[in-house]
Design a protein around this nucleic acid. Structure first.
Length: 575
RNA sequence: CGGGGAGUGGCUUAGUGGUAUAGCGCUCGCUUGGGGUGCGAGAGGUCCCGAGUUCGAUUCUCGGCUCCCCGACCA
């Protein structure tokens, strides 16, 4: 591709609203432009990379035996009502009406459509298993889009869905796609890790997230250094600590704690460590109030709470509900006497509560706390459980080692769905015994546009992008340092030859200053660069420089030819 | 949704109660030619929108919209 005829508007400065390095570089290098918050235009160079990524994914999924389809972006309300997600999905689902007033949404994912599709055409176990996938635009009306295309509202995604007749076959397919994902992300050149994750709005039995390791990642990952268990921190289970020996228990004492509303203030005021505090959080789980006891400095993991209660939704109680239940203002709720006052409100306690002896708790009375509160003696929760968001010091539930924490970008997610959608939408089949059964499903996503951004996050320098070979928009960048004369003539020849050999070449034939050409080449980040210039041409040589290396080499044209034939310059197309 | 900040040529920005600054980019001429060359001449702006205050508002006030940041939410 001749740069003189190619639309790559590069910028010296990044727009001020670009918030991370990949967004800055993608804008500067002319891959994308922003249309609106979380919505982007993809320019030729960006699209090329997207297609590269897409092709690798397609190759591996086809190899695994999946079939590509193309599903609608605009999906009818009824379908979403059938699965129950028209209500459950919430505001993230962008809804609208057509001219007749019928409800539609823009697809954030496609379980409904695909399940319906398969249910219509598959009715026998003989037609299973089956795995379909598509590439398509997805829309999720995020509350706060940010990080460029990393967390966009409109994005490009590959989504796959497997249908199986029995558990074993379903698990085999899960593993098959999982393995394909490992191959895909390896081919992209990623440093990544598959971790256990929450299933969120998609639902299902369990899931894995594929995380590209990067300091700028939005997700925190807990990794057990001993047994290898790793999970998204929001999902990480914690080994229950051993209960404290209840010795030297003192009598409860009431203390006045005026205006002490935070644990930190209290700890300071009473001169006690935060882990000695029992805080009470009031939640609403599907509109029913529930109280949870946590250790002072610990954070409640709402996902764990939701799971424990099998609730669809949990949210913090508002001030009114809090006041009613705690008979106090925010900050003074406590477990002592709580059940007597609220026999119908479930009282839960985090496992760590059992480590507290002679603790401090709210007195359910304004500006008052209780000292020397002890579990069992002074209060008995309805249940203990693991409600704590994993943090430093917590231990692996499998082997007891303390967790390490790293950050990652979620580029892929595999779900073992079970029969959640097939049961809701009557995707049934007849088995050998003539029994009607719902298909067992799995679903599998890769954020294609996010993969691109993650690649840049993981591989760039001060001058610009450094593409991994597999997804680079071009194999080779060729620069003619003169826009005319001998240099241009020779460059044209080289370009011609490279193209003949099947390399994709970005050829800078513009009438620009050498400096501009070098800067643009570094910014755009093609792995291999050839330069034809006045300095070396009389010696019959040209320069070769790898974007991965600091030093350049000088080759004669004969040497270039030889290397190209031996494919010493590795090219992705050669696969 | 709560808190904070910002909207001035394509991009980055200065500034002002009397319609606007500079750099980059763009066009033209000369110059230069291995890391964004130098000089000169140009084109390009409803100063986010609406209302109010004022003789006069891009500037002050209010409302709205958009964008950004922190949090909550989502995954």
């Amino acid at each position: 591709m001749k740069l003189s005829q190619y639309y790559i508007p590069t910028l010296k400065e990044a727009p001020k609203d670009a918030d991370i390095i990949s967004a800055k570089l993608m804008t500067r290098a002319g891959l994308i432009r922003k249309t609106a918050s979380g919505i982007y235009e993809w320019l030729p160079l960006g699209l090329r990379v997207l297609k590269k990524i897409e092709n690798i994914i397609r190759e591996e999924l086809d190899r695994a035996g999946c079939n590509e389809v193309w599903l609608p972006v605009v999906q009818p309300q009824e379908l979403w009502e059938e699965s129950g997600r028209w209500t459950y999905y919430g505001k993230e689902l962008l809804r609208f009406k057509d001219r007749k007033g019928a409800g539609f949404c823009l697809a954030p994912t496609a379980e409904e459509v695909i399940t319906k599709l398969v249910s219509k055409d598959v009715s026998s176990y003989k037609q299973l298993p089956l795995c379909l996938y598509q590439f398509g635009t997805k829309f999720r009306d995020e509350i706060r889009p940010r990080f460029g295309v990393m967390r966009a509202r409109e994005f490009y995604m590959k989504d796959a869905y497997s249908f199986a007749a029995d558990e074993q076959s379903a698990n085999e397919w899960y593993q098959r796609v999982y393995d394909a994902y490992v191959e895909i992300f390896t081919r992209f050149g990623f440093k990544f890790k598959a971790v256990e994750a929450d299933t969120g709005a998609i639902g299902g039995n369990f899931s894995h997230e594929f995380m590209v390791l990067a300091q700028t990642g939005e997700n925190e990952i807990s990794v057990c250094p001993k047994c290898g268990y790793s999970a998204n921190t929001e999902k990480t289970e914690i080994k229950a600590p051993s209960a404290a020996e209840q010795q030297g228990l003192r009598e409860i004492e009431e203390v006045s704690t005026p205006n002490m509303r935070t644990i930190a203030e209290l700890a300071n005021f009473l001169n006690r460590p935060q882990e000695n505090f029992i805080k009470m959080l009031i939640y609403k789980a599907d509109d029913k109030p529930v109280a949870v006891l946590m250790r002072g400095e610990d954070e409640l993991n709402e996902i764990k709470l939701r799971k424990f209660l099998s609730a669809n939704e949990v949210e913090k109680a508002d001030a009114e509900l809090y006041a009613k239940i705690a008979s106090s203002d925010l900050g003074f709720a406590g477990p002592v006497g709580f059940k007597q006052k609220n026999p119908n409100v479930k009282l839960l306690a985090d496992n760590y509560i059992k480590t507290i002896v002679n603790g401090v708790a709210g007195a359910n009375k304004l500006d008052t706390h209780l000292l020397n509160v002890n579990f069992e003696r002074d209060f008995t929760p309805d249940a203990y459980g693991d409600f704590k968001l994993a943090s430093k010091g917590d231990a692996c539930p499998h082997c007891g080692a303390k967790f390490d924490f790293i950050r990652g970008i979620e580029v892929g997610h595999t779900f073992k769905l079970g029969t959640k959608y097939s049961a809701a939408m009557n995707a049934n089949f007849l088995d050998e015994k003539q029994e009607n059964k719902p298909m067992i499903m799995g679903c599998y996503g890769i954020g294609v546009s996010r993969v691109l951004a993650a690649a840049i996050e993981q591989s760039h320098d001060d001058n610009g992008i450094i593409w991994p070979e597999a997804i680079s928009p071009f194999d080779i960048c060729l620069i003619a340092l003169d826009g005319e004369g001998e240099v241009k003539k020779k460059s044209d020849e080289v370009y011609q030859r490279l193209s003949e050999l099947g390399y994709s070449v970005l050829y800078d034939d513009r009438d620009e200053r050498p400096g501009s050409k070098f800067k643009d080449a570094d910014l755009v980040g093609i792995p291999h660069r050839l330069v034809v210039g006045k300095k070396l041409l009389p010696e019959g040589k040209l320069e070769y420089k790898s974007r991965y290396a600091a030093k350049a080499d000088f080759w004669t044209f004969a040497e270039l030819e030889e290397k190209l034939k031996k494919t010493a310059v590795n090219i992705s197309n050669a696969r």
